[in-house]
Amino acid sequence: MTTAVLALTPGSIDVMLLIPCPWCGPRDQCEFDYGGANVKFPDLRHSPETSIDDWHKAVHLRENAKGEIREIWYHRSGCERWISTTRNSLTHEFSEPSAGDEEESSRNCDAD
């Protein structure tokens, strides 16, 4: 009986994250490596304009919100691409990718 309840309410209990890969569809978390927050890093090609503070912000400081966070995952046992997702850190629910997400993922992720 307990098993049936667990299976019927997948949103209420995390058997494992189900990550929406834009290339492969929803896949178990065990296929992925976590890549951290989706952060815009300073552009190395224009290094004279990049300050220590820019790097400090990109490498260290995190919103760490209790709510929606934007992050990247590497689909190691799947398409072997970096993907970008938006996930709620309190409920573990993934949001549908938006147009803005795609623009963001073209910066940090494989987008070809």
Binding site: D14, Y34, I69, S89, H92
Partner: peptide, 13 residues
Amino acid sequence: DGYPSYAKRGSFS
């Protein structure tokens, strides 16, 4: 668990 979370409940893996 390997990723940021405030859920205070864990994954079975």
